[in-house]
Design a protein around this nucleic acid. Sequence first.
DNA 1: TGTACATCAGTGAACGCGCGTTCACTGATGTAC
DNA 2: TGTACATCAGTGAACGCGCGTTCACTGATGTAC
Lengths: 208, 208
Amino acid sequence: MLEKAARRGPDTRERILELAEAAVLAKGFAATSIEELIAAAGITKSGFFYHFRDKGALAKAMMLRYIEHDKKVLDEIFSRADELNDDPLHGLLVALKLFAETLGNLPEAHPGCLAASFCYQDQLFNQDVRTLNAQSVLRWRERFLERLQAIARRYPPRREIDLEALADMAASNVEGGLILGRLLKDPSILPRQILLYRDLIRAIFQPE
Amino acid sequence: MLEKAARRGPDTRERILELAEAAVLAKGFAATSIEELIAAAGITKSGFFYHFRDKGALAKAMMLRYIEHDKKVLDEIFSRADELNDDPLHGLLVALKLFAETLGNLPEAHPGCLAASFCYQDQLFNQDVRTLNAQSVLRWRERFLERLQAIARRYPPRREIDLEALADMAASNVEGGLILGRLLKDPSILPRQILLYRDLIRAIFQPE
DNA sequence: TGTACATCAGTGAACGCGCGTTCACTGATGTAC
DNA sequence: TGTACATCAGTGAACGCGCGTTCACTGATGTAC
């Protein structure tokens, strides 16, 4: 037990999920074959079915992994942003700046979002997976709406504004920015969209 | 020749493309089988291959059809918006309002964008199709950027602003709104996002 | 106006390949006594 | 400390089905003369 080592591969299951995510973001779930995943992971087909009951179980595991990762990233950014101040507007502006930097420095050439990929193929998945997917975006809504409401209390905006839509715009803007970035193969689009969203938030709430 | 009628079905090719678009938006291109399309269209497999050399040719035809439709809708909305005035800001605000209404009243339960669907599966397509897809979003950029520049000349914004990002935000916001609408099965999200974008444009440029 | 030919919009049968899934088995590690 | 058994992380072979594609053919319409 001393070694706790790598029985076979070091966490094969995680490796499969990683490979699957990259493949799905490149060509979709249906076109991602188990065959190619096991070839890349260096196991046999039966090895795959030891980890996942069927292909549907792979989809669900991918979604759970994605949601967990998503939550972790957001948590970290917001807690870093709130570290040294307790002004909700300032905190959000810092968070958005951090977010733009994080997403601008991703190693992948054409990053994508699994939620978006799955939602454009959702007939392939069972209700379970679809519900999980909806949850991931609901968390964004809640998180940003809470923030914006706190900000609006302290800095009443000059004009009336649909706060829920403005909260959804955070996620919407990221999804849209990812798509434009992919279509035009321009990784600068997403960070610029986020910084633009940030500028708009500031323009709405910040007293002159 | 009098009848010019319906040789077999009335424009089978168009019917296939229509069916294919709906299927692709629901489950992706790879999972959309020729078999299901011909079953729905009421022809045989060979009939399909009379219209399309192979599945790749179907993809390209879908993209061309989508681009043409996209252009027509935008042309129409902008020309309606510009009909009775020549103020660029007012024109854009009217256009965005029309756009929100148009997209809010779509008959489909969960509308989607073929460009977005394809970009999340772009490994399935050849360079030809990918280039077409990029063009569709470039047209949005050009169109909105032109507008925004004209607006900025007449109404210099209070703060400096990244006009190109603001132009891209039009497309980005629609793509994002579609995704959120699908994920949450809420058709009101997209029109609200567009109206929010409109409010932001007004807040940036309109003199108090 | 009638005939010969061309084209358009398909039909029908067959193909091979790759996919997801199943099942009986295995060899290394961990645990009970 | 040694042995018996259980579990973990797989292997290997076989399966049937559906998919995209091909090929020879067809029957209705259009066109030339």
